[in-house]
Structures are given as C-alpha cells and as structure tokens.
Write a protein that binds this DNA or RNA. Sequence first.
DNA 1: AGCACGCCGACT
DNA 2: GTCGGCGTGCTC
Length: 717
Amino acid sequence: MSSDDQPNGAEQLALIRETVRKARPPRAKPRTWRDAAMAEHLPVARVLVNKGVVHLDRTFDYAVPAELDAEARPGVRVRVRFGAGKGQVRGGRREGGGLVDGFLVERVATSDYQGPLAALAQVVSPEPVLSPALLTLARQVAERYAGSLADVLQLAVPPRHAKAEAAASPAPPPPPPAPEPGDWERYPQGPGFLAALARGESPRAVWTALPGPQWADELARAVAATLASGRGALVVLPDGRTTARLDAALTRLVGPGQHAVLTADAGPEQRYRSWLAVHRGAVRAAIGTRAAMFAPVRDLGLVALWEDGDSGHSEDHAPQPHAREVLVLRATREAGAEGPPAPAFLLGSVGCTVEAAQLVRGGWAHPLAAPRDTTRALAPRVRTIGDTEVARDPAARAARLPSLAWETAREGLRHGPVLVQVPRRGYAPRLACDRCREPARCRNCSGPLEAPDAERLTCGWCGRTETDWHCEACGGARLRARVVGARRTAEELGRAFPAVPVRTSGREQVLDTVPGGPALVVSTPGAEPVADGGYAAALLLDGWAQLARPDLRAEEEALRRWLGAAALVRGQGAGGTVVVVAEPTLRPVQALVRWDPVGHALRELEERAERHFPPVSRMAAVSGPPAAVSAFLAEAELPPEAEILGPVPLPVTPPGRPRRPGGPPPGEQWNRALVRVPLGGGTRLAQALKAARAARTARRGAGVEQVLVRIDPPDIG
DNA sequence: AGCACGCCGACT
DNA sequence: GTCGGCGTGCTC
C-alpha cells in the first residue's frame, strides 16, 4: 500500500490536519479528532461500514485515536461517523454523519483517501469476531450470489450480546479417540472415509444414506474422527429436529463438551454464546441449521451437510445463499492459495439431488453408497397403485383409499404404526378436469384455478372467484380431487379404522416420535415423526398432487419426500411395506420402487444438460416492474455467452393474499427474466448483475424502479 | 438511504 | 440580489 515517497501514517495525518486547518474555519473542524493524539503505529483503520440498505461494498479509512490503539484490532466491531456532509457543524457542535456500525478489517500505515480522515468513534467490543477466514468466506459468498458483503456479514456474524461476551470461555477439551466405524461398515468405503478423516486427510464424498435412523450416529462418527485428527468439524442440518438427533448422537459418542449447537430458536443470548464458544476455539465442532454454514470453526477439518434437498438449507435473507454451495466453497481452495488446507466434505442424504449427482459426475466428490443388496434388504418393499383404482370396501372408499392401500394399512396395523403421508393443503397444483385432465383455467384471465379452501374456487392470477366452472375441453363439471389436508384425512381414516388411534403431525404441530404400537400417523411431508422400531407400513397418498406442480424440480422433490417417509419404515426383511398412490409408469415412482435415488438424479442431470438448465448452467432471475426488468437487461453488460430467457409475466399476487418472497406486491404486474451462462461463467454473470444493480440503485429516487436479482432461483418451471 | 451542493426561475 | 426548487453525487 505505502510507497517509499509517501509520508508515514502519523506524518500524513498531521499533514491532513494542517490542510484542514487552513482549508476550513476553525469552528468547522471535526470535533472528534481536533487535537486528539492518533495511534503511532498503523494509524489508519480500514472499516467495513454496515449502513442498512446501502450497498457499500468497500472499506472506508478512519484514523485510529491513540486511546483506541490497543483495542482497534482487525475483526472488531466499531462505530464510526458516516454520511454526507464534510465535517459541517450541526446543532452547534456535532460532526456530520451519524454513528453507524462497522467492522474493522485491517490496520494500515497510510490511506489513499485525499480528504481528512475522521476518527473511529468507538470500539464496540475487543472481540475480533470477523476473522480473516470468515471475511474471505463472506467475500466469496457475496461474489457467488451477486450480493453485498454487508448482507452476507449480517448472516455470518450473529448480533452481539454483551453478557454472553463477558463470560470467559473454557479451554477446549482434549480430542476424543478415533471412533470405531460402527454402522459405516455397511458401506464399502465407509471405514476408509472415517480413517482418512482421523489421519487428517480431506476426502470429499456424496453419501447415499441407507434408510433408517443410523445416519445421526454415522455423522457423529465422522465428526469424532475429524476431532481425533486435531481438527474441527461443522455439520449443517435442515431443521431443529434433525439437529437435535445429531446432538444426541454426538453426545452419546464423545460426551457433551466437544460441540456447540447453533440454532436460531435458542434465542439471541444463547445463540451468541454458542457462536462465541466456536469462534474462541472453546469447542472444536459445531452443528446446526443453515446459519451455522458460516460457523467460524477453528482448523476446520470437515464440512458436512445432511439432506441437501431440503428447502430449509436455502437462506431466505439476501443474497439467499444455499448451505450446500457455501460448504462447497469452504471445502474448495484454489490451487496455490494461501492459508490452511481445505477441509473434507461430506454430503449425506437418503435421496440424491441433481446438484449432488453433479459433484460426483464432475469428479469433485466420490460416491459413498451401500451395495445394492444391502440397500434392498434395508429398504421397505414399495408397491404402487394408480390413483384411478377405487376400493370395493365402502369404508376404504370413504377414506379415499385404493384397495391395495387399504389392505396394506390393515395388515401393517397388526404389526405396528402405519404412516400416512398427505401433501400439504395449499400445496395443491393446478386443478384439472376430473374427466379429461384439462387444466382448469380462469374465464377472466386464463390463470390457473386454485381451491384455497373446500368451498371456494379462485384464480391464482387475478383472484376472481369462480362459481360455475365447466371444462373448456369436454364440458365436464367436476374437478379432480383437490388435496385434502392432514386433519380431514385423519378424521376419515379414524372412521375407517375405528379401533386404532390416529395421530397427526403437520405444520402447526410436529410430532418428534411415536411409540411402536399400532396407530395411524397422518403427516405432511417433512413432518413425519420417527416411529419406535420403525413403521410397519406407509401410505403415500395423492402422489399426483406432488408431481403435477409446474416446477423443474417437482419430480425430484416428490421422490425426495417419498424416500424421506419410506426411510422411516422397517426394511422389507422385517415386513416393512410402502404403497405409493401414483401412476406406476412415472420415473420418480419407478425410482422409489427400485430405491434408486442416484440413478434418478443422474438421469435428471442428463436432461438438464441437454436443456442447458441448472446445475449444468448457472442461472439468475431478474424480476420487477416490466419496464424496469427490460431496462435493467439492456443496461447490464452481461457476458457474451449469457442467454436471456423471457421476460415473462409473473403471476399476480391476488389482493389480500400474503406476498410471496421475491414476488410482486399484491395487485402489481411483474415480469421475470432468466439469465443463464454455461458453468464457469457464474462469477462473471454475478459480477455483471451486481454492477448493473449498483448502477440502478445509485439512480434510485429519480423514478428509477428497482429490480430483484436472485442467483440460483429455486422455482424455475 | 440521507444529505449537501448546485444551477435555474420568482420573489422582496 | 437572494430564496428555494429538486436533480446529482458522495459518504473516510
């Protein structure tokens, strides 16, 4: 930074002071540093200013007062005066600009800034929360997602809590011994993977987990093996329930003192306390939900992710990074880069996302899967039944069960609990004619008709209520069965099986576990309780509803949800049976029957490659008022290989309906364009979009409407 | 985002 | 002359 012919920092500051004295009337001198002594060594602080909506992605230089010299170390939280007004006097004596929070990133000898430097107003706390490694990661994530560094830091560094900070952190416990392989023996490469972790190596694997509850213990062993090598470990899980299971397994294996649990529901104080324990190195392992993806684990030796297909891994705050992508960044170090060696990587899931398949296909990670016959023995028997079949038994008909499902439930209840998975209400796809399957459209605007409740029929675009629908194609008057919620399904099943207790688990009330006795357990996807000893059977109802969603990921998602439920059922050796009510010829249905999630993901990956869809390309969505989207695309200096799809109108949020994240405000017509580039051009695309948006933000106010930019949009149909 | 600066028209 | 409109640009 400094060159030989420049004055040293202290001299430069003195010069600046002189200049200012001459240039401005004495009363206008910024009060903060008038006559104040500055730090002698490295008197300039580079500060990353955290100013709300403003996207200031650069540091600003401040002078370090002598009395803050000791505390003003890189990484600490500071407060500085920031804002327009060149030191003008307001209210008699105040310096221009308000106090804003920031991070001190670096101490340097000189500043390139030509004007007078303001002084650091305050070192909020001496805790250097923004370590160089965390700053580097945050910069990478901001770059990957076309977001601002300030936004990412807000996700990566939890809010300070003074009481939690005041408490001293203990020294870390001695590392545990390397664990036995345990259930990893079921995978040919399992024990070797564990041994490599224990030796301090950094293997990368995509692990197709066998059905059953052992995954938590297996993840715990991977953590323990990494700890045994003297390194730290990080595991990100999709929700609090799975985090609690790993917490219990890890505590069983290595005791309570080796890891911290980072979850949002712990409350701000506990959350910051746990985060600090990780940051200070008082614990070497961290587990938790998506915010933990940034956890500043010391000497990171392993990053692991459980169930990367779960939507819980997608951060919903800007720039909406995905835990899998962030952990891939953490496990990747460019050749020749400085710093510690990259950690090992473990992505575990019962199913297989297209992105996970790509990590293997591209050679970045190795597959870690059980032999075919092991999988077959441990997975339940899966049978399919088309949804046109209707049961003979009147009780089954009343419960809308095909006879095979009815028989399976009756048989299963003799041996234990039976799980019934029903799609969430409101998850309903477009309604269709019951006779010819023509989608039901609004007579007003041709939008898709929806059934917000059992009584009404409304348009998903314009919100108009339809009272007398008839099929445009065949004149039919009946709509295809709308999705019935978990509660009503439970009532109907209760009448069909009067002697059996019925329990429900859904969004409002999620059951964690159920006992091993006969019971019907009705659950929405993702809320399935674990049954003691495993379910005897499972019925996966209304498969058509999961498959009919107009989304690129509908099939993958349906398979993931079915596998998630089926993995809680006893293996077919123990009589476990699953019935999926869906068209048997469909690909995800067949993948479930064969229990072949990887094959399904690979096939899907091939199709995405043919169609140049993610993850084989990198995509970004630009949405906003139509004129703004068009202008934005015209202004943006996109890379030459970029391809623009659309823009197309987005569905209008009907008045009174809550606004979807990233969607238009109620009643407003928005457009959305997709921009895609071949893999490898992602960084250039993100840079171009970020620059274009920054330019637009600068012109805001003058009637320049803003657009939303989202990298890796989750819903592309 | 704020907030000041600046360059044009109507007023005391 | 000078007050103030908001369009433009900067914030260490």
